[in-house]
Nucleic acid binder design. Sequence first.
DNA 1: CGATCGTTTGAGGTTCCTCAACAAGTGTGG
DNA 2: CCACACTTGTTGAGGAACCTCAAACGATCG
Lengths: 227, 227
Amino acid sequence: MAIVSSLVSLPAAFALTCDLPSAVEHLASRTHYHKGDTIYYQDGPAEYGYRIVTGAARECALLADGRRQVLDFLMPGDVFGFCAPGVHRFSGEIIAEATMVARYPRHRVEMLAESDPEVARRLRQLAFEAIGRLQTRMTVLSRTTALEKVSTFLLEMADRSASNAKNSIALPMSRYDIADYLALSVETVSRTLTALRQRRAITFTGARLVSIIDRGLLQWCSENCAL
Amino acid sequence: MAIVSSLVSLPAAFALTCDLPSAVEHLASRTHYHKGDTIYYQDGPAEYGYRIVTGAARECALLADGRRQVLDFLMPGDVFGFCAPGVHRFSGEIIAEATMVARYPRHRVEMLAESDPEVARRLRQLAFEAIGRLQTRMTVLSRTTALEKVSTFLLEMADRSASNAKNSIALPMSRYDIADYLALSVETVSRTLTALRQRRAITFTGARLVSIIDRGLLQWCSENCAL
DNA sequence: CGATCGTTTGAGGTTCCTCAACAAGTGTGG
DNA sequence: CCACACTTGTTGAGGAACCTCAAACGATCG
């Protein structure tokens, strides 16, 4: 399995979006990955932070008994890997075909943060946002039925993925990924999607192309659950 | 319901433990709370960060349908409330009778971080630790049976609470709190604890006083699940 | 074309939730 | 002091939701 397809150090002028302060972006190098590539490995040294430029990835953990857990899906603009304490507790894996990832040497960013309050502030802000996202995710994982989980997931993806078409979702991940993200079995994810389709909350253009028909119904399902 | 029992601004010399840089501790004021008090409210303004000095608290969310979710238990030394974006997304509630909480004005701490790299670094570090804790918690919530959840919970509490007696746990929270923390029903929590007692993994000195007899068995239950 | 992967659907079993009752501890007021 | 309500914790019975096992179908790829 190819780990790194091509490593290109581009000058910062090529930056599509400057999510981080320019002083940090100057430290970045960009890599083009293919589906299935691993950016970093669980228990491997955590020397870099990352940002998705285009494409998509997942952060996942392999449990002792072989089960897999998807902790987060990473979409364009998402910054990750900065908070790892020495070693990565999870692995970062590419799920979309043409994915571009910006890489930042953590040690040098840390040094930058020591002298540049703006960098420090931005890092803090990113960490706080990550905490908020994780807390929201916890409220979804806990206390929810399959219908609530899947509905919430679709709304989340509609929000995060397409900036233009709010009701058209191109899911970059498989049903297995969704299942491991929501702590459900693949079959339950599939059945729940079918149920949502039969209730005319969504339609499928393809297996991974979802259109939201009735957003109100979807939101109702994501909160209220009981059908 | 009493919200704030007594508000005492103590000089930093009274600090029991200085978890934050002394420049930050100088901004702290300390409050003594009683069981049931609320430190801050969901959707209320987030002007302060907090640290538990003694006692225990919980951070919890009230869902639309009335269900409650405990996002975290807060034990002595735990810093929280710094990452709230303007308003608190959850409420902070005291669960132990005599609980002392240190309070830090967020705005002034932020200003301090702008000029003092050490403060900024410590805040970053705290945020990163919080992220790690949340990620661990997610792996517990997902993909686990009741036995796994409760076993993991007991081990976590044994680790966090008592510094001296590693195998004796004084749980400050009720079974309801545990249930809402693990996303289980109270009955399941109770039954699972009984099961662990019958298997001689733990014993009860009281309803909230647990002793670990067979830590290996408990760890096995927390990972392997299937009995 | 065969093989593998991803997705969907069906049947059966297990876990956990819900409803219900009971016991122990605590506080209140007569 | 005791009756009473209330809280907290435990246990039982029944049912619903979800997981597991199994099979079938379409798509992709060598």
